[in-house]
């Protein structure tokens, strides 16, 4: 954490910088100064696309993308209200498919996501196309050892 000297190169190269409420380097700064709540409440970690541009260009070799992973994980753990709630709902819906089937199941994912967000109309243009092109299977690809996957989820979901 003390590695960061606040040069801002991460923010300068961040592809989603324009959509963020505060700059990525500022999230680091807030945590350096002990303003954890402010940092955890920010939308920035949720908008981070994990593209690693910041990490590969950081002059101090600070892995900011991984740091953002940690911030999000702590925010979930602490139950901080996530302003970019759709993004979190998407991730949850995605992981639910894996938990149940072992692989991603796009129909289930989209259905669950839409139930959660009540955003029923987005993507209506692409889904039928995907069906027509035979890309969306109506049934999930279940793996055999779903028990193992469920157990991994169970063991890793406990409060630390």
């Amino acid at each position: 954490m003390s590695l960061c000297y606040q040069c801002g190169k991460c923010s300068a190269g961040c592809p989603v910088r324009y959509y963020m409420d505060i700059a990525p380097n500022k999230v680091v700064r807030l945590i350096q100064l002990g303003y954890y709540e402010e940092a955890l409440k920010s939308e920035t970690p949720w908008l981070c696309a994990g593209c690693l541009t910041c990490s590969v260009r950081c002059p101090k070799e600070f892995d900011l993308a991984k740091f953002m992973d940690a911030v999000r994980e702590i925010a979930i753990e602490k139950g901080v209200e996530v302003k970019q709630e759709n993004i979190l709902k998407f991730h949850k819906a995605f992981l639910d498919q894996i938990k149940n089937h072992g692989r991603s199941y796009e129909v289930g994912l989209v259905a669950e996501y839409k139930m959660k967000t009540l955003d029923l109309f987005q993507d209506v243009d692409s889904a039928p196309g995907m069906f027509l092109k035979g890309k969306l299977d109506l049934l999930p690809h279940n793996i055999k050892n779903r028990k193992e996957i469920k157990s991994i989820f169970k063991k890793t979901s406990g409060k630390k």
Partner: peptide, 12 residues
């Protein structure tokens, strides 16, 4: 030239 003004907190 893609930068960030870290004083203003704005991309430049």
């Amino acid at each position: 030239v893609k930068g960030e003004d870290t004083l203003a907190g704005m991309p430049v």
